[in-house]
Every structure is written in structure tokens, then in C-alpha cells.
Amino acid sequence: MRRQSYILLLAGLAGISACKPDADFRTPAANYTPERPAHFPPAHYTHDKNKYSQAGFELGRKLFFDPILSANNTISCGSCHKQEHAFADVNIRLSKGIDGKTGIRHTPAIFNMAWNTSFMWDGGVNQIEVMPLTPLTNKVEMAETISNIVYKLNRHKEYPTLFKNVFHRDSIDDQQMFWALAQYMSNLVSASSKYDDVYTGKTTYTKDQQDGYNLFKQNCSACHTEPLLTDYSFKNNGLDYQFTDSGRYRITRREEDWGAFKVPTLRNIAVTSPYMHDGRFTTLEQVLHHYADSVKQTPSLSPLLVKNGKPGLHLTADEQRKIILFLRTLTDTKFLTKAGLTE
């Protein structure tokens, strides 16, 4: 009888151990829901395959701030994307990549990426997971190869364990690296500015801010659509008569996209100077002055920037001032200082 018990005990254990699901299909150890504000529309990126977890977010954060991702281990994503500037760069027109090299466009801010329908100033990148491919491999940015990053990560003293905890695979592959970065970037969510508090009825604007908001709705919100403050379209906003950077045309080869760039969100705009795809303006006053009276008429100019048959929005100095007062309500100090976002 005693022997029988042991046999049955063994059978029981064998049965239980065979029930362990395949590693790849195990649910994440720490379940965690990505931050999706109630007053935002549904996110574009839904984590269907790349299951979200707190450990995955933290792994992505570690990668984001680790220079191991660059060819000579000197710069990280975080070198140019800084939290206090809404993950844009620090008041620099063109960011410095590897060996101090510079590209042609201004470092964009990174937040609310899960709602983005395309990436980069020209929208050439179609999905958040493949977005880092550009800066990681670009010769003037981080100049590394994906296979060498995977090689370095697999030989690192911490990463193999960290990746295994999140993705439960035997070794690190590039999909896991891109997935971890996507978990981090798609959950940098800025939705707690004064604008949001007014939008959700928790507070009200000052008189000038309210005037600025009304002017914004008349002049700007056709492209800077609420509540994300962009419609993710591409527009030629009349910066030049001759474009040295063809913008969206580079991707589509359509004449109407000549000199068109992605409409950026206006959230946190007061802390993401300089402005425009090439960082040509350093102040919001210069930006408003451009839209008021300096818009250049070219065939691909957005018709929304022509008023009364003349290019420009024709805003008075006082109207410009009030719009800027409204724009400052879009600064999300809680997000800029939130703990746990920067390594």
C-alpha cells in the first residue's frame, strides 16, 4: 500500500508538471494595463502580440537609456530624448549623433506614441515597433547594426535574465528588443496638463487663456485636432519657397506632398523648442509670427493656411499673444517630472 501511494504521488506530480503551458504563451508575471486616458480616443497601437507588462516597460526603459545600442557604446536614445523636454532634445536645432555628427531634422518629442499612425517627420515609418530601426542604424545617429546589438545584449551580464523574465525565450532576438522598446515608448503618456483638466471639466481657463483657446479653435485645430492636438496628417505649412528637404514627398512621390511634414502635437509645445522639422524657430512668438504673416505661397501649401485669398492666418499681435497663453496650458508638468520614466 505504501509503495502504491508513492507511485500515485509520482504520477500526480508528473501530471501536474506536464500541465505547464509552453513558455511562449505564458502570461506576463506582472499584469499591467498600459495608461490609456479616458478622454483620449482608442490607441492605434494595441499590444496585440507584444503583451504589455511592467517588467517589459522597465526593460524598454533600460534599453532606451543604455548606450550599448550605439556602435561605439557612447550614446543612447535618451541622449537626445530627455524627459524634462517631453523626450525631445535640449534646445538644440539638430541633435548630435555618433561622433558629434548631425542629421537634417530636429529631434521630435516622444509621448502619446501609441496614438501615432506613422512615425518620423515624413511619416516613412509605419509601426512603433520598427520605429527605432532608423535611429539605431542611421550612420549619423547610433550607427549600429541590429545583429550586433542582439549579439551584445546576449553577452551582457543582466539582459539575458531581464529578457527571459519578460518574453520567456531561450535567447534574446531583435523582435524582443523592438518589443521592449515599444512597451516603453507607447506608454509615455502625457494627459495631465491644465488643458486636460479644462477638457475634462475639472478647472477653467483664465480670460486670456480662454480667448487664446477660442482663437486656436478658429485657426489651428483643423490640423492640431483635439484632444491629441494633431490629426497625424502631413502639411506644407509655408516655411519656404524652395524646399531643401522634400519632406513627405520623399516617401510618396506625390507633388501635393512636396515640403509637407507631419503635423506635430502641440502638447508640451512650450518645452520642446526649437520648432519645425528643421528647428528653425526658437520661440513660440516666432512660430505665431510665421503663421500670422510669413506663410509662403507654393503649389503644395495647405489651403488651410490661406485666408481671404492671401497666405497666412493674419493674426494680430494680441491674438498671437493669447494663442501662446493657451499653448502654455498644454505643458504637462506632471509628465515632465513623473518618477519612473527615466532610467
Partner: peptide, 11 residues
């Protein structure tokens, strides 16, 4: 994406 058979700038 490590094969070099994916355009980084124009997905």
C-alpha cells in the same frame, strides 16, 4: 529586421 531586407526610413 536584422537581415538588412527592411527599409528603415520607408517601412
Amino acid at each position: 529586421l536584422s537581415s538588412g531586407m527592411f527599409w528603415d526610413w520607408n517601412s
